[in-house]
Design a protein around this nucleic acid. Structure first.
Lengths: 213, 213
DNA sequence: AGTTTCGGTGTACGTGTGTACACCGAGAAC
DNA sequence: GTTCTCGGTGTACACACGTACACCGAAACT
C-alpha cells in the first residue's frame, strides 16, 4: 500500500537472506534447497529467481555481509589518537582493542560467523574464494598497520606477512569458537582471555625476533 | 573362489569408504547421496546398509582413519634419543621435527585431510564432535610433552593449555593449506617455511613469557 | 487514462532421493 | 551333503528437488 515497489522487493530479498542463514544452521549451504528457503519465506519456489540466480550467489552476498562490518571494526581497533610510545605498550594496546572488538562484534552477528566458519572450507568454490579473499584483505591491512609502528624495521616483508598470517589465523579460530559459544558469558570470557594471552605471546616472540638473525 | 567371505566384505567396505572420500571432493559429506556412493562402488544402493547404518557413521570412520596415523607421527616427532640440552635448542628441534612430519604425512593422505578440513566445522554434529575430540587429544598430548621439558616450570597449567592450543591451531591451518596445495612443490615449500617461522616466533615468545608476570 | 514493468503465483514434468521388501547364491557350519 | 548365514540384487513407492511456462495484478511510467 504505502509501500513502494523497491521497498517491497528489498524486504523479501532480506527475508530470503535471513531464511537461508537460519535454515543453514548445522548444515552447509550446499545442502540447502531452494524450496526450503522459499517455504520459510512464505513464497513460491520460482520467486527465488527474481532475487538471486542461484544459491551460490546468495552465498556470496552473505559472505560480503558478514565481513563488511568486521573489517572496519578491526582497523578502528588499531588507530589511536595518542599512540603509546613504546613498541611493547603499543602492541599490548592493539591486542586488547582487537580482542575487545572481536568479542563485542561476533556475538552480535553470530549466525553470520557460524556461516563463514562452515563455508570457509566446505562451501562451493566461489564462496570459498570469496571468504579467502576477505581474510587476505584483513591480513594485508594488519600487515601494513604493523609496518607503520616505529620499531618495525626489524622485520622483513616476508616475516611481516607471516606474522600477520599467524595473528589472523589465531583470531579466526577464536572468532569461530565465539560464534559457537552461543553467547554464554563464561565461555566468552574464557575465549577472550585465551585470545589475549595467545596474541601477547606471539607479539612478545615477534619483538625478540630478528629477520636478519 | 579363493576369496573368503570376510575378505570380500572388507574389500567392498574399503571401496565404499574410498568412493565416499573421492565423491566428497569439493562438497560436504552431507551433500553426498547413498546412491551416488553405491553407483561409484558398482553396487546396488541398498547394499550400503550391509556396511554402514548411515552416511554419518561412514563419516566417523573416515575421521578416525584420518587421525590415527597423524597423532602417532606427531608424538614421535617430539621424542629424542638424546634431547638437546638447552630449552631453546630443544624447542627448535621439536618445531623442525613436527613441521617435517606434517609436510611429509599430509600429502600422503591429502584427500583425508581435505575431508577433515571440510567436515571440522561444516559436518553433522556427530562428525564435528569426533574431529574436535581428536584435535583435543593432540592438544593434550602436546601440552603434557611440553610440561616435561626442564624449564617448563615457568608456565602455569592454564598457560600450557593456551600455548598448546595456539600451536595446534597454527599447525592445523597449515595442514589445511597443505591439503589444498595438491602437492605442488613450491607451494609446499612455502607453507613449510611459513609454519616453521611461525612456530619459532611462538616458542620464542613463550620462552620469555612468565605466568607469574 | 492507457500501457508497461515486474514481483509473485500455480501447474506441470522429469529426475534423484531414501528405504522397504522379497529374493538369490555361494561360502560357512554342521 | 544338508542346512544356515549373509553380502548383494531387483523392484517398487512416495517424496522432494530444480526449473520451464503461462499467468496475474498492482505499482510505475507516459
Amino acid at each position: 500500500m504505502t509501500e513502494t515497489r523497491v521497498e517491497r522487493k528489498e524486504r523479501t530479498r532480506r527475508a530470503i537472506l535471513d531464511a537461508a542463514l537460519e535454515l543453514c544452521e548445522g548444515q552447509p549451504l550446499a545442502a540447502l534447497s531452494l524450496r526450503q528457503v522459499a517455504k520459510q519465506v512464505g513464497v513460491v519456489p520460482t520467486a527465488f529467481y527474481r532475487h538471486f540466480e542461484s544459491i551460490d550467489q546468495l552465498g556470496l552476498e552473505l559472505v560480503d555481509e558478514s565481513f563488511s562490518a568486521l573489517r572496519d571494526l578491526l582497523k578502528a581497533a588499531r588507530t589511536f589518537d595518542t599512540p603509546p610510545s613504546s613498541d611493547r605498550a603499543l602492541f599490548l594496546a592493539v591486542v586488547d582493542n582487537s580482542v575487545k572488538a572481536l568479542v563485542s562484534h561476533v556475538p552480535r552477528a553470530e549466525r553470520h560467523f557460524r556461516f563463514i566458519a562452515r563455508e570457509r572450507l566446505a562451501g562451493s568454490l566461489l564462496v570459498r574464494e570469496a571468504v579467502r579473499h576477505q581474510l587476505e584483505l584483513i591480513e594485508r591491512e594488519l600487515a601494513t598497520d604493523i609496518a607503520r609502528v616505529p620499531g618495525a624495521g626489524r622485520w622483513s616483508a616476508d616475516d611481516l606477512q607471516i606474522l600477520a598470517n599467524l595473528l589472523v589465523n589465531a583470531m579466526l579460530s577464536h572468532a569461530e569458537e565465539l560464534a559457537l559459544a552461543n553467547g554464554r558469558p563464561d565461555v566468552v570470557r574464557r575465549i577472550e582471555d585465551t585470545a589475549r594471552r595467545q596474541l601477547h605471546i606471539v607479539l612478545i616472540g615477534a619483538l625478540s625476533w630478528d629477520s636478519s638473525r
